[in-house]
Design a protein around this nucleic acid. Structure first.
Lengths: 194, 194
DNA sequence: GACTGGCATTAACCCGGGTTTATTGGGCAT
DNA sequence: ATGCCCAATAAACCCGGGTTAATGCCAGTC
């Protein structure tokens, strides 16, 4: 199910339709700011975005990337109405459609097929988070990096090393060292083509 | 909503009722083994259990603890029918009620209030996982330990240091060093009662 | 009381990653 | 071509946590 069909389905509801807004955001701007409340479910039509925490010391740790056709939101705001612990920032110019969560939740209560879609969506998110927990618990930084290159191959070309490092939980310097190690291992291990 | 009421509600369904089994498991035994398929949703009536990964090198990393009145299961098995990446092990003698996920899922599709319960349950799990991701990304081992003591105060007395260490992603030796640091800081900082 | 096994702690050593600072090199505007 | 900015790399140093092995400390049990 792509988000365009889903948004069409939401627009069909007369209560919800007037609350649905489509907007554009320039690269670098923030769709949700850390510490603010935003109860919207955000459908990313175009562009690339990240969710990230900024710590007291001013360091930024990226918790997720989102590309075209993704669904984002701050669960904490949606469910509890409390301020978001993280920000959503545009890494490229973005086009989004925002739908208030409570309206969506009410509609879903009346529309079992919609509830099922979000139920399945939650399951997908759960499984991604489970994998990420596994990687932090059991894998080294190098293993996490190599796993990232595979899993996110489609967006890797659009990211900087610093962004990738922040996502796997290390500094850009440490990532640079890891890349060096990998290159050295490869040049030692691989016999030249001729 | 406690699990006893929920189980009663599930038993009311004639299709599902015969598939519901209540069993006991001795301390140390495994309810789900790593690498095996178990599509059950497991209601923990009594006892204490853990979910954990065992790596190639034989090290065990604990991903969650569950006490009385908790709901557990391997999402991967339930949703995809694939082998579980982790095991569920009893830390005390346990009494559980197991319900097949697909039956539950079908019933939920017909019973919106049940779907809503599981939807909310998923939201709770999502928020816990989000917190855990934050802790691994942004906090030091010491901060994670002190956070654990607060969040899990009710089960801390039932756990060993090694289990706590495994949960926060360090070795028991490292945890012992952290505890020493904390004690020293306290004895320096706190003025005696008299 | 002596033996045993499991848990927690300690010490000694090593290594990966953080920190700081400096260098390189590629885009891009003027 | 020049100068600027930023991403990426490199070098030097430090520290937290892993590893191994030894010690202390109970609680059972015979």
């Amino acid at each position: 199910m792509n988000i365009y069909d889903l948004i069409e389905q939401l627009r069909a509801d007369p209560d919800l339709a007037p609350k649905i807004r489509t907007t554009t955001h320039a690269k670098g701007s923030q769709i949700i700011k850390q510490g603010e409340v935003c109860g919207d479910v955000i459908f990313l039509r175009k562009g690339l975005a990240q969710m990230s925490y900024v710590t007291f010391e001013g360091k930024e740790w990226i918790k997720s990337f989102f590309a075209e056709n993704a669904i984002m939101g701050a669960r904490r705001c949606q469910i509890l109405g409390e301020p978001s612990h993280f920000a959503i920032t545009c890494l490229e110019d973005c086009e989004i459609t925002a739908v208030p969560y409570d309206g969506l939740r009410k509609l879903a209560a009346r529309a079992p097929d919609l509830m099922a879609i979000f139920f399945d969506f939650n399951e997908q998110v759960s499984m991604r988070k489970e994998k990420r927990e596994y990687e932090f618990l059991c894998l080294s930084a190098q293993d996490r990096y190599q796993g990232f290159l595979e899993d996110y191959a489609h967006i890797v070309p659009r990211l900087t090393q610093a962004q990738i490092a922040s996502f796997i939980g290390i500094t850009p310097i440490a990532l640079s060292r890891i890349r060096k190690r990998i290159n050295q291992a490869e040049s030692r291990g691989v016999v030249g083509a001729q």
